[in-house]
Amino acid sequence: MKKRILVVDDEEGLRLLYKEELEDEGWEVELAASGEESLEKLESDSIDLVLLDIKMPGMDGVEVLRRVKERWKDLPVILCTAYPHYKHDFGTWASDAYVIKSSDLTELKQTIRDILGKKE
C-alpha cells in the first residue's frame, strides 16, 4: 500500500511543488490549504504523515500540531517553515521533525523516508 501524506500549506505554488515531488518518490499526496481544512481531511481520509507549514492565516501550524497530537497521538508530523527560530518555540517540540523550507527538497524527502521507515 502506498503511504499517504497530507501537505498543509497556504501557498498554492508550494502545495503543487510538494505534491509533484513527493508523488515522484512514490507517495500519495493529499492537499490542504489551511489548518481548518487539514483537520477535516484527517477526519475523513486515512493519512500516514502530515507535512505542516507553521505560518498560515487562521489556525496556524502550531495549533494544528497540538490538535493532531491530542487526537492521533502516533501520527507523525513534520513542521515546515521558513524560519529556524521556531525550533525553540514551546509549541513545536512535539513535532517529529523540523525542516526549514528550501527549493531543494532532498532533506525533506529523506526526513519523510526516515520517519515512515521507522514506523514499519
Binding site: G13, L14, L16, L17, E21, K55, A82, K101, S102, S103
Partner: peptide, 17 residues
C-alpha cells in the same frame, strides 16, 4: 523577506523539476 521567500522556493523547486 517573508513574502518573497515562499514564491522563491516555488520558482527554484519547479526549475529543478
Amino acid at each position: 523577506a517573508h513574502e518573497i521567500r515562499n514564491p522563491l522556493i516555488s520558482i527554484g523547486g519547479f526549475a529543478g523539476r
